[in-house]
């Protein structure tokens, strides 16, 4: 146990400023957005994920968002276990026909006001899986989408920007393509 405490202390705080870096595509408004999240949600923005048939690549990056580097809790954002506790719904995958009903029900279970972030190229358009006997071809075919975050998969930073953009209310409805 002492070893674990030593390790925690020796690593120190790794949480990076939000946003941790400042690429061109990320506007200076992010600070403003973050302030607005804090104002409206009092450090308590609940995020719920539904995997609607992704390849699990997007889930890996959503998991990565929980890495200490992204300091998600510091931004007042947390993943919640039930749609009843959520403000934002993240949806990954092209929406398989077998998940269509579950996605609709999860969306309906979230109390208004609510925002939906369609994650990844699949969530945006169906991606490589397109539209077929098995997939619906994108989240907006099934439920209203506030913001789309393209990428295969989008990086944690982009996901964070998508979440902040959705709640800012005055945003473009799709982030630009992910830079190489």
């Amino acid at each position: 146990m002492a070893g674990l405490l030593r390790q925690i202390l020796s690593l120190g705080l790794l949480g990076e400023a939000l946003p941790p870096t400042q690429p061109e595509w990320m506007s200076a408004e992010v600070d403003h957005i973050q302030q607005s999240v804090l104002r409206h949600f009092g450090r308590s923005l609940g995020v719920r994920l539904v995997d609607a048939g992704s390849c699990n690549g997007c889930e890996l990056e959503i998991h990565a968002l929980n890495s200490p580097q992204y300091n998600l809790a510091g931004a007042g954002i947390r993943f919640v276990a039930s749609p009843r506790h959520a403000d934002i719904l993240l949806v990954t995958g092209p929406v398989s026909r077998h998940m269509e009903e579950a996605l609709k029900r999860t969306y309906d279970a979230i109390p208004a006001p609510k925002w939906v972030v369609a994650v990844g190229d699949c969530g945006a358009t169906g991606g490589l899986f397109g539209e077929s006997y098995a997939v619906c071809g994108g989240v907006s075919r099934i439920i209203p989408v506030t913001v789309t975050v393209p990428g295969c998969p989008p990086s944690p930073l982009r996901l964070l920007q998508g979440i902040l953009t959705a709640v800012s209310g005055s945003a473009p409805n799709s982030l630009p393509p992910q830079p190489e």
Binding site: G53, G93, S96, F129, G130, S132, A134, V135
Partner: peptide, 11 residues
């Protein structure tokens, strides 16, 4: 299982 069936082989 089968919820994420995307028809990969057909695709």
């Amino acid at each position: 299982l089968g919820y994420t069936h995307k028809g990969l082989e057909k695709r």
